[in-house]
C-alpha cells in the first residue's frame, strides 16, 4: 500500500508543496548563507598553528571554571540575577491572573 503511493512524483510534489509558500524566505536565507560562506571563505583567519594536543587531559573544564570564578565573576553574578529575574517574570506571566 505504502510503496504503491510512494512514487518519485509524489515526493517532488510534497517538496514543492512545502516550499512554494516559503519561496521568499528560502531565497533570502540562501542569499544570506551564500554571503556569509563567501565572506568566511575569503577571510584570512588569524589562528594558532596547532590546537594544543594533550591526550592525557582533553578537558578544559578546569580552566573554564578557574576563569568563571576569577576573571569573569562579575558577569557570572549578574547573570545569576538576570536568570532569577527571568524566572520570576516567566512564572508571573505564565501563571496568569489566577482566575482559572
Amino acid at each position: 500500500m505504502l510503496n504503491k503511493h510512494f512514487t518519485i512524483m509524489q515526493i517532488l510534489t510534497s517538496v514543492y508543496k512545502f516550499f512554494r509558500p516559503r519561496i521568499a524566505g528560502m531565497i533570502v536565507a540562501i542569499l544570506f548563507l551564500a554571503i556569509v560562506i563567501i565572506s568566511i571563505g575569503f577571510t584570512n583567519w588569524n589562528t594558532v598553528d596547532q590546537i594544543p594536543q594533550n591526550p592525557m587531559d582533553q578537558s578544559n573544564i578546569q580552566g573554564i571554571g578557574m576563569l568563571i570564578f576569577t576573571e569573569f565573576v562579575i558577569p557570572f553574578e549578574i547573570l545569576s540575577i538576570v536568570l532569577l529575574a527571568t524566572l520570576m517574570g516567566a512564572i508571573y506571566m505564565a501563571k496568569g491572573d489566577g482566575t482559572e
Partner: peptide, 8 residues
C-alpha cells in the same frame, strides 16, 4: 532565560 520568557 530567553526561552523561558518566550514561552511565557
Amino acid at each position: 532565560a530567553e526561552a523561558a520568557i518566550g514561552f511565557a
